[in-house]
Design a protein around this nucleic acid. Structure first.
Length: 613
DNA sequence: CCCCCCCC
C-alpha cells in the first residue's frame, strides 16, 4: 500500500500558533521516524506515566512531537512503531518554560511498518517565518531556552528551532494567555489556561487520619473537549470555595496536573487538577463553546437492565419529596442528612432517589413536581431498583432540554393521574433467581473451594459454555399433573403416577440432563431439569422425543447444535452418595441465556464505575 | 494531602 504523506505539514505545525485550530485539528498523514521513551521529571512520582517523543516526517521535513500519555498504550502494544505511517488527527501545542512542544492527541494508523519515505530534513531556524504579534516579540536577543528537566531535550531532533524564536510564536496575548482544551492537559505542560464550566462542586470535607488532618473540596470542570476533577486543600479552600460556583465558567491556570486515581472518581480523565496557593481563577462572562452537562439518560424502566452499583443519568418528574431526616451511619459513626425523592417517567415506573448530606439539606425546589435531570447517580437494588446521589453527582431542575419539555408535557397532561409500577425484587436484571453477576465464579474455583460439603449445599453463579450433552437419557416420563412431575410407570396402555394415584393415557416427558460445561478455568458436569432443556433446545421434551423417534439424525443434530452456547447459571453444589460412591454434584437452579446488551453494559460499568466490581 | 457515598 502506498501512502502519500502530507508534505508541508511539519512546516505548518512548526509555525502554527497554539490557537491555530485549522492546523492542529486537521489531518496530517505523517511517518514516525523514531519513537523514544524520555525520562520523567526527577520529581515525578513513580506512578507517573511514561512519556514518548516521536520524530515525525511529512516526507520533506521532520520534527519532534510528544505523544499524549493517554496514547502510550499504542507504543506499548506496538500499535505504532518505527516507520509507522499514521493520520495524526488532533494535536495541540504549548510552551513549557520557553520551549514549544507539539503534542499528539489522536492518531489513526495507516501502516504499521513501511519503508522510510523520502529523505526528510530537519526544519531549521531559517525556515521559521516571523509570525504573531510583533508587540510581544522579544527579538533575537531573547535568552535561549534552557534545557529543563521538565521536558525531554529535543537535542537529537531539532535543537535549533525550539530555542530560536519561541516568543515570536507565543499565542495571541489575551489576558488569559493560551486557552487549552481540558483533554490536552497533562503533567508535562505548565503554561496553560482552561476555560471551563464548574458542573459540580462538593461540600467542604474534613478529614483526620494517621497522616494528619485537613479540609478539601472538589469541583468537576468541563469544556467541549472533556472534563477533569479539581481539588483544593486547606487554605486554598478558603480562597477558592466561595469563588467557584456551580454552573459558572472560569478561566483557570497555574493548577498542578496530577495523575488521577481512577479508583476514586468516575470522571473520564487520566489526570486531575490540584489547586495551589498561586492558582488563578477568574470568572468568564463570554460563555461561548463551553458546554453544559451532557446526559445519557436511562428511562426508569431501563434501570433493571443495569447492574447494582452502575452509574447512570436519569431525567424524571419528582412526584414526591420527603423532608430531610437525620440517619446515623454506623459506618461513619455520625449523623447524616438524607432526603428521598420519588421519581416517575413515561415508562410508567417509579423509583426512589436518595440525596445525602449537603445535597439533601440544600434541595430547595418550590414547585411540587419539578422535572429534574440527574447525572452520575448510582443504581442500588433496594426495593428492586433504587437510585442514590454521590457527592459527585449533579442535578439540574427543569433544564432547558427537549427531554425535560417532553416530560413536563406528558406529566401535566396524563402522567399526574397515572399509577406507577415499582421495580420489584423478582425477575429481570441482576436480581433474577439467585444469579449474581458480580459473584460469578470460575469452575475451577468452585472445585477448589470444595463446595457441597455434607449437608452444606452451596449456591454459586457461573458463566459457562456447553461442551457436550449426554444424549442417551435426556428425559423421563412424568406425571402431567401440574407441579407433580413425578416419574410415571407404563402400565399396559396407560401411565401410572403413584403419588397422584392416577393413570394417564400419555406422560409428559420432562428433561433430566447432564451437561458438560466449560469456562476458561476448566470443566464440570452440571445436572439440569426441565426448564434447562427447554431453554437449551427451545422445545419441550415431548417435542424432542418425537423428533428422536422419527429421525435419530435430526435428534443428534439438535443436541450437537446446543453445544458451544454460553449461558449464565445459578447452581447448587451438593454432596451426593450413590452406589456407595460420594461425589459433589452441581445442580442448575436457573439457566439464563446471555443478554448481550446487559453483558456489555456490565463491562462498560466495570470501566466507568470505580465501585462496580 | 481525600478517596467515605452511607439508611431502610
Amino acid at each position: 500500500m502506498v501512502h502519500q504523506l502530507s508534505a508541508g505539514s511539519c512546516k505548518r505545525l512548526q509555525n502554527a500558533s497554539p490557537d491555530d485550530v485549522d492546523v492542529f485539528e486537521s489531518q496530517h498523514t505523517l511517518q514516525f521516524l523514531s519513537i523514544k521513551k524520555v525520562g520523567n521529571n526527577p520529581g515525578a512520582p513513580a506512578s507517573a506515566p511514561d512519556r514518548y517523543r516521536i520524530i515525525m516526517s511529512d516526507g520533506i521535513n521532520y520534527m519532534q512531537a510528544m505523544l499524549a500519555t493517554q496514547l502510550n498504550h499504542m507504543v506499548q502494544d506496538n500499535t505504532i512503531g518505527r516507520n509507522t505511517i499514521a493520520v495524526v488527527e488532533k494535536l495541540t501545542c504549548n510552551y513549557v518554560q520557553e520551549k514549544r512542544l507539539v503534542i499528539i492527541l489522536s492518531l489513526r494508523v495507516l501502516e504499521l511498518t513501511a519503508e522510510k519515505i523520502g529523505d526528510p530534513s530537519q526544519i531549521g531556524p531559517s525556515e521559521m517565518p516571523a509570525v504573531a504579534s510583533p508587540s510581544t516579540g522579544n527579538g533575537p536577543s531573547a535568552p535561549p531556552a534552557q534545557a529543563t528537566p521538565e521536558v525531554a531535550s529535543p537535542a537529537q531532533a531539532a535543537p535549533a528551532q525550539a530555542a530560536a524564536a519561541p516568543r515570536q510564536q507565543a499565542p495571541p496575548q489575551t489576558r488569559h494567555g493560551n486557552i487549552y482544551p481540558i483533554e490536552g492537559l497533562s503533567p508535562y505542560q505548565n503554561n496553560w489556561t482552561i476555560k471551563a464550566r464548574v458542573t459540580q462542586k462538593s461540600e467542604i470535607k474534613t478529614w483526620s487520619n494517621a497522616r494528619g488532618e485537613g479540609k478539601l473540596f472538589n469541583v468537576t470542570l468541563m469544556d467541549d473537549s472533556g472534563e477533569i476533577r479539581g481539588t483544593g486543600f486547606n487554605l486554598v479552600v478558603d480562597d477558592l470555595y466561595p469563588r467557584l460556583e456551580e454552573g459558572k465558567v472560569y478561566y483557570i491556570s497555574k493548577a498542578r496536573v496530577n495523575l488521577a486515581k481512577k479508583k476514586f472518581s468516575n470522571i473520564n480523565n487520566d489526570y486531575e487538577l490540584s489547586f495551589e496557593r498561586n492558582t488563578e481563577v477568574e470568572e468568564c462572562h463570554e460563555v461561548t463553546n463551553v458546554p453544559t452537562i451532557k446526559y445519557n439518560f436511562v428511562p426508569l424502566n431501563g434501570l433493571e437492565d443495569l447492574s447494582k452499583d452502575a452509574i447512570c443519568d436519569v431525567i424524571a418528574v419528582v412526584k414526591e419529596t420527603s423532608p430531610v431526616t437525620q440517619i446515623t451511619s454506623a459506618k461513619l459513626q455520625r449523623e447524616l442528612a438524607k432526603r428521598e425523592l420519588t421519581l416517575v417517567d413515561k415508562s410508567g415506573f417509579s423509583v426512589r432517589m436518595t440525596l445525602w448530606g449537603k445535597q439533601a439539606e440544600q434541595y430547595n425546589v418550590s414547585e411540587p413536581t419539578p422535572v429534574i435531570a440527574f447525572k452520575g447517580v448510582k443504581v442500588g437494588d433496594f426495593g428492586g431498583r433504587s437510585l442514590s446521589m454521590f457527592s459527585g453527582s449533579t442535578m439540574q431542575v427543569n433544564p432547558e432540554i427537549d427531554e425535560c419539555f417532553a416530560l413536563r408535557g406528558w406529566y401535566d397532561n396524563i402522567g399526574a393521574e397515572q399509577t406507577f409500577k415499582a421495580h420489584s425484587n423478582t425477575g429481570g436484571g441482576s436480581s433474577m433467581y439467585g444469579f449474581k453477576r458480580e459473584e460469578i465464579r470460575s469452575l475451577d474455583e468452585i472445585k477448589q473451594a470444595g463446595y457441597g460439603e455434607p449437608d452444606k449445599p452451596e449456591n454459586f453463579s457461573a458463566r459457562a459454555t456447553i461442551m457436550h450433552i449426554k444424549s442417551d437419557n435426556i428425559s423421563y416420563p412424568a406425571c402431567p399433573t401440574t407441579n407433580c412431575n413425578k416419574k410415571v410407570v407404563e402400565m399396559g396402555d396407560s401411565w401410572r403416577c403413584e403419588k397422584c394415584n392416577q393413570n394417564f393415557p400419555t406422560p409428559e416427558h420432562r428433561y433430566i440432563m447432564s451437561l458438560a460445561v466449560a469456562d476458561y478455568s476448566g470443566q464440570a458436569w452440571l445436572q439440569g431439569f426441565n426448564d434447562v432443556g427447554t431453554t437449551i433446545f427451545g422445545m419441550t421434551a415431548n417435542q424432542l422425543l418425537e423428533i428422536k423417534d422419527r429421525d435419530i439424525n435430526e435428534y443428534n443434530a439438535i443436541l450437537h447444535k446446543a453445544n458451544c452456547n454460553t449461558y449464565n447459571f445459578s447452581c447448587r453444589a451438593k454432596q451426593d452418595t450413590y452406589n456407595e460412591t460420594t461425589r459433589i454434584r452441581y445442580g442448575i437452579s436457573r439457566i439464563i441465556p446471555l443478554n448481550y446488551k446487559e453483558e456489555a453494559q456490565m463491562l462498560r460499568d466495570l470501566l466507568y464505575s470505580p465501585w462496580a466490581r
